[in-house]
């Protein structure tokens, strides 16, 4: 049970997981949810975590920044292909960033907890964004979503720079 609880908490403890997760939720707004791509991404991320190693942190931050920038510049809803692509890549890199160096030894319940909470959180953010986009009139909700994506991307760019400048444990990526 402790493993499950830790798995549920893990994505909220690390900015390299939390920030791209917020971007993912916003990117899924306004269109069909790529559920299969997302689940495949979570599994692929767990399996490939050791392969990516420490690079997973920078990759997760970089992919989140790129996705945020694309959403900020294009605005919601994103085209289906792009949403499916992000729906696979972002969960995979977030999962890899959380479990690199220990995916083989992590308890199954812990990994399942993280996968579940990542999926639910992304869908919840997308639902809230959808609600704002459909219920509030005028261009303001769309603009607010784009500004939020832009600011998240800017924070992710800064964090990525910190990680690349100081990739040691205890630095920005720790």
């Amino acid at each position: 049970m402790a493993a499950l609880t830790l798995g549920l908490r893990l994505p909220f403890l690390y900015p390299e997981a939390l920030l791209p997760l917020l971007v993912l939720g916003l990117a899924l707004a306004g269109g069909q949810r790529p559920l299969i791509a997302g689940l495949a991404g979570l599994g692929a991320g767990l399996l490939g975590a050791d392969l990516l190693g420490e690079a997973a942190t920078a990759l997760s931050l970089g992919a989140g920044a790129l996705a945020g920038a694309v959403l900020a510049l294009k605005g919601p809803p994103l085209p289906g292909m792009l949403r499916h692509g992000m729906g696979f890549v972002l969960p995979a890199l977030i999962m890899a960033a959380l479990y690199h160096g220990g995916s083989a030894s992590a308890p199954a319940l812990m990994a399942l907890g993280s996968m579940g909470v990542l999926a639910v959180t992304a869908l919840l953010i997308a639902e809230i964004a959808d609600l704002l986009l459909t219920r509030l009139p005028g261009p303001i909700p769309g603009l607010a979503l784009r500004i939020a994506a832009s600011w998240l991307a800017a924070i992710l760019i800064l964090m990525l720079a910190f990680v690349l400048a100081d990739p040691v444990p205890g630095g920005a990526g720790a």
């Binding site: 920038a69 900020a72 510049l73 261009p139 603009l143 784009r146 500004i147 832009s150 600011w151 991307a153 800017a154 924070i155 760019i157 800064l158 990525l160 720079a161 910190f162 690349l164 400048a165």
Partner: peptide
């Protein structure tokens, strides 16, 4: 008036990243 607050933080963060990376 609305595009600038979307674009400006992104470009500025990119500039800051260049500075952080030396």
């Amino acid at each position: 008036i609305w595009i600038l607050p979307v674009v400006f933080p992104l470009v500025m963060a990119f500039g800051a990243a260049l500075g952080i990376l030396g």
